[in-house]
């Protein structure tokens, strides 16, 4: 139940994510000034927080989306399985987000 509304919220949040990706791509295409500005905004503390939040949002939506695809194929409908996979999606998304950002920091990312 909670996973379901979270799936909707993280889905709606992709409106914001779509803007982030588009702005970043457009800045890269438009020129050095535009790009540097965008990079510095993304790299600011608030920007980084938003990026981490966005990473979690898309991780959860993806893992929970897999749950949906299994349901559509007919698997995982028992009460117990559904509850378990819901927890897997939630915990998995946190682990995935941590992994992604750990990797990013290890590779010395400035953005």
């Amino acid at each position: 139940m909670a996973a379901s509304i979270l799936h909707r919220v993280t889905g709606a949040a992709q409106y914001g994510g779509a803007i982030l990706i588009t702005v970043w791509l457009a800045a890269a295409a438009m020129g050095d000034d535009a790009y540097t500005t965008v990079q510095s905004i993304f790299g600011s503390p608030l920007g980084l927080m938003i990026l981490v939040g966005y990473t979690w949002s898309i991780s959860f939506h993806l893992i929970n989306g897999l749950r949906f695809l299994f349901w559509d194929a007919g698997y995982g409908f028992s009460k117990e399985t559904a509850t378990l996979t819901g927890w897997v999606a939630f915990v998995g998304s946190i682990i995935l987000t941590s992994l992604i950002w750990a990797m990013a920091m290890v590779m010395g990312a400035g953005s």
């Binding site: 990013a104 590779m107 010395g108 400035g110």
Partner: peptide, 24 residues
């Protein structure tokens, strides 16, 4: 579109991380 995006998103996230330090 969901199915198509599973490999694409995974690829994109990994690629983005490895290119995070790129200059323009």
């Amino acid at each position: 579109t969901a199915l198509v995006m599973i490999p694409l998103v995974i690829w994109f996230v990994i690629a983005l991380i490895s290119h995070a330090d790129d200059t323009r």
